[in-house]
């Protein structure tokens, strides 16, 4: 088994702007690379809150890399409507599929998960809270704890682990992840939730591994880049 997940279904949640989509895309790629080319890996975009920088925007690109993106089709792909394809339930029940759910931000975005509560019995999924303490309203442990309660209440599911995605985008240093881990450490103590992994760009991954030797690192290839960014940095490797 891989250290980044324990179950077939990984649910990626958190506050908006915490980096859920990058984590979800790269976790899908990690699953694909772990299980090999025969594996069916579905990335389910249930983000009905956000409207730009969504998994569905990379539909074609991810398809080429063996990831099946499930999202509203046709015109609905470009809308911010609470419309979800029926095939989501199919993927959740298909034991042959590896599934990653990219959930909308905040309790508002997590509400959509409540719809799938019956498809997701406790113990059948990992539900990972992505945390970036450099974002407003998740910059302290009390706020993180409130977020956990609110997301669990709206989604009717249990968060099972944490992801330390401390970052200031291009300005991120390994020390930023270390400082973030201090906060997550306290959150671990208070909630009993373990840190499943830290996530960062490949350039700082070796230094992060040295500083945080007990936590697996998910290297992030960046997909949600603005149109003026040059060059892509596709890693998606563990």
């Amino acid at each position: 088994m891989n250290s980044l997940w324990h179950h077939r279904v990984s649910i990626i949640t958190g506050s908006y702007g915490s980096g859920k989509t990058e984590v979800a895309i790269n976790l899908s790629l990690a699953k694909r690379s772990f299980y090999g080319n025969e594996a069916i890996v579905s990335l389910i975009d249930v983000d009905i809150v956000n409207l730009y920088f969504r998994s569905r925007d990379k539909f074609e690109e991810l398809a080429k890399r063996g990831i099946h993106v499930i999202a509203p089709a046709g015109d609905l792909r470009h809308a911010d409507l609470p419309a979800l394809p029926a095939s989501i339930s199919g993927s959740l029940h298909d034991t042959q599929q590896q599934v990653v759910l990219d959930v909308g931000g905040d309790p508002a975005g997590a509400t959509v998960l409540g719809r799938y509560q019956a498809d997701l019995p406790e113990g059948s999924y990992d539900m990972i809270l992505v945390v970036n303490p450099y974002r407003p309203y998740t910059d302290n442990v009390d706020a993180m704890q409130r977020l956990i309660s609110a997301i669990e209440s709206k989604s009717r599911l249990r968060i099972t682990a944490l992801c330390n995605n401390s970052n200031l985008m291009g300005f991120t240093t390994p020390e930023d992840l270390l400082r973030g881990q201090d906060l997550l450490g306290e959150l671990e103590v208070r909630t009993g939730l373990p840190t499943a992994f830290v996530s960062c760009v490949p350039a700082i991954a070796p230094a992060v591994s040295v500083m945080l030797p007990n936590v697996p690192v998910l290297q992030l290839g960046l997909y949600m880049l603005p149109p003026w960014a040059t060059g892509n940095n596709y890693a998606g490797e563990v």
Binding site: Y16, G17, Y134, R135, P136, L168, M169
Partner: peptide, 16 residues
């Protein structure tokens, strides 16, 4: 924590 905060444009305008 650093002085810098990671923000969405809409949030940054509001906070400013």
């Amino acid at each position: 924590m650093k002085q810098r905060v990671l923000m969405k444009g809409n949030e940054a305008i509001a906070e400013a």
